[in-house]
Computed example of a mutant assay.
Amino acid sequence: MEYVENPSDGTTIAYETIGAGTPLVLLHGSALSHSIWRGFGYVKALRDQYRLILIDMRGHGRSGKPHDVDAYAMDLVTEDVLAVLDELRVETAMVLGYSFGGRIALSLAERAPDRVGGLVVGGGSSRPQEGSFDRLFFPGCVDVLAEQGIDAFLEQWGAVRAWPIDPGTRAAFRANDPVALAAYMRRCDVEPGISADSLRQFRVPTLAFVGSDDSDRLADTEELAALIPGARAVVIDGFDHSTTVAATDEVLRVVEPFLDFARQFA
Rank of each mutant, 00 (worst) to 15 (best):
S215E: 14
S132A: 15
L106K: 07
L199N: 00
R115H: 02
F258E: 10
G64P: 13
L154C: 05
P113K: 14
D134I: 06
L32C: 12
W163H: 12
A225T: 11
L52P: 09
D237I: 06
V95R: 01
F133G: 03
A182E: 07
A93S: 15
K44T: 12
E91K: 09
G230A: 10
H67W: 13
M74N: 11
R51Q: 14
V204Y: 02
D189I: 06
V160I: 10
G59A: 09
Y72L: 02
D114M: 01
Y50R: 15
L136H: 13
L85D: 09
D48M: 07
A175F: 06
F153D: 11
D214G: 02
A152E: 13
Q201E: 13
G158D: 07
A219S: 10
E130V: 02
N176L: 12
T12K: 11
R263I: 05
R263V: 08
A183W: 00
S8E: 15
V144C: 08
D177V: 10
L181R: 07
Q156W: 01
I53A: 05
N6E: 04
Y72N: 05
D114V: 01
R115N: 05
L88V: 14
L154P: 04
F138E: 04
A71Q: 11
S107F: 04
V160D: 03
G21T: 09
W163Y: 07
F265I: 05
R115E: 05
S212M: 01
L85F: 06
P178G: 02
P164H: 01
G59N: 08
T169D: 07
C141R: 06
L145R: 06
V43K: 02
G211K: 02
T17M: 10
R103H: 06
F265Q: 13
P257C: 04
T17Y: 03
P167L: 09
A219Q: 13
V254F: 00
A247V: 11
G97E: 05
Q156M: 07
M74V: 12
A152W: 03
